[in-house]
Design a protein around this nucleic acid. Structure first.
Lengths: 197, 197, 197, 197
DNA sequence: GTGTAACCGAGACGGTACGTCGTGTCTTATT
DNA sequence: AATAAGACACGACGTACCGTCTCGGTTACAC
């Protein structure tokens, strides 16, 4: 049942304009140099319109980044029957998505937003990486069921390693995100076959 | 050649007091709620004394965290001849070091400082993780030379995975840093022997 | 023609509260010990609200003092037909107005504000004393027209003497402003009849 | 008895250099924009050397201005037997001394120093104007004794008027100090003969 | 000559105020 | 009721200044 809305409804156009302005500024200036005033004036919007929708700058930035992340494409981890190929395929797409400097900047902005609030930070990371993390674990468990993956595998540790690698490279080596794709192959090789001679 | 030392020299006592105060406040309040004013008053110091040494809050926090990290103990990656045992030993010590909430809080603070400044962020991570990263790569190369590790191993990818895992868990799951130690074993198993059945 | 009035208008209540707080602090502490922070907190106001209205402490103090001076009463120099009586009456009222320690403190504060800025200082004094100075000159010219005052009188010199005396006593002998009133009579006697035997 | 002075004696050269630097800066920048650091570096001197001699900036400025005032010439109020001529002569010399913009700037600086401290301010004005004030009163009393001046003259009021006029013009009309000399004549005329027709 | 005490330039120190900027709330007129 | 504009309380930023303290080094008197 739709709850009766009185008065002027919120403009979805305005909503999108704010998120766009936020992303543009984040990419151009970085989290610290983006102020709510700047976002408002850049979006041609009053400041109250921002706070009517998001309770804080961190939340606005979070939604702006997540919004791009979700609309930016699907990172579905398919099950073609070959675990190694499926994980390799997914990791390469994931690395490619983060490779463009703008997207890397957005991830860094989200890290900054997460750092703002100790409590919300955890939730933010979970929102960003949770679905992928779960997908990797599920695929590995399917691999175990299919007899392709050793039953004693610590699936959480492997999922952490795949996502942690991406995150670490984005945060610590933002200028070499291009290489991340190359090393994705090496990482999958090591995890599937082991590094032991 | 004499680097003319004129005027009153900077006090090392004051220097240490500032770093101590910074760490105490970071642990208690988190990066966002630590202000230069608070650090100064907590350290019984004038604000100018802070800015005489560090150009910004991010730099001060970086040094405070690094200082604790360095003095906090050595994470030497020994070479006992057994690559798997050496890496496992080192990763467990590394995970244990980050496990205490206070140390986790300091790492999170460093991430926040890095996120603040697009330019310095990269350097900060490199300072923090660089030595460990290099040590892992070197040990793997020695393993290759000793015939214990496959020659085609992407040593950088493996190093990224080990350090990225730790970082990811600290940032995204700060309340479960204790479990990180447990999964360290699983990660080493997977990387050494592979997950393939 | 419409001076686009958009956004929240500036509060006159706040304006008055700031001027009141400024005067209270000036009287209690003196110009040097009044800070913008203190004025703001005493007025229950943010510092930016001060700087939105006045560009500097000197300007704020100037307006606060002037405001009291203007609203404090009229020092009209009447024309009853008797120049000596009119000037004597006006000078006594003027001296009395400055006599209370609080008012003397405000005048001293204005002198301090004027000294702060070489450029604005002149304008400040002119605002404070200009109207009175003009009134004295005008009354003397009317006296000349009425045949009561010698035609070759240097009316500006006489106006300077009357106002300069008050100012000098307030600045140089703040503890004896009470006596100023007594000497006002003597000054008028000397100027009207001359001191020559 | 001279108290035995041990150790290196204070340099009179340094003393003079500091006062010179202080005056130069006061004339160039005004009281508020002269800092102790600037005076020290301008005089090629350590800051402690300033504070070894003067307890505060206000005191240093006061001495610098007074020093120029005293060495600048004598304003002796002679007694030639003609009160009117003597006062006129003295007032003209006094006005001339203050006329140059640099000297006016120094007087304004002293006013600023006096405004800094409510207690010392009074003493400063007394030091600056006291001797002249006393001299005027004494000369008038001699005039009374000689029968040239009316016995009921309020000599203090007259002295206040003469000195107050000079001060008022310097503070309120610094750009027209040249005219001050012209009006000195008119003021003496009015005070001696009265303005009554 | 050789202490030694006070001086000197330099600059770090604790503290306070400055004037600016950012966050999140509130208040206008307008739509 | 939502909007653009912008004032508001609060508080952090980074700089400048005051007056003190602490270095290495110098100068003149006393022994």
């Amino acid at each position: 049942m739709t709850e009766s809305r009185r008065g002027r409804p919120r403009s979805t156009v305005v909503h999108a304009a704010i998120l766009d302005a936020t992303r543009a500024l984040l990419i151009e200036k970085g989290y610290a140099d983006v102020s709510m005033d700047r976002v408002a004036s850049h979006a041609g919007v009053g400041k109250q319109t921002l706070y009517r929708r998001w309770p804080s700058k961190a939340q606005l930035v979070a939604e702006a980044v997540m919004d791009a992340h979700h609309s930016g494409g699907s990172f579905a981890l398919l099950d073609t029957g070959d675990v190694a190929a499926d994980l390799r395929d997914w990791l390469l797409r994931y690395a490619d998505a983060v490779a463009p400097p703008q997207n890397a900047a957005l991830v860094r902005a989200l890290a900054a937003a997460a750092a703002e609030d100790l409590r919300d930070g955890e939730a933010l990371y979970r929102q960003l990486t949770g679905p992928q993390h779960d997908a990797v674990m599920q695929r590995l468990r399917q691999g175990i069921a299919a007899g392709q993956v050793r039953a004693d595998t610590d699936v959480e540790a492997v999922a952490d390693a795949l996502i942690g690698t991406i995150l670490y490279r984005v945060l610590a080596r933002p200028t070499t995100t291009g290489e991340t794709t190359r090393h994705a192959d090496g990482l999958i090789d090591a995890l599937i076959a082991g590094v032991r001679a």
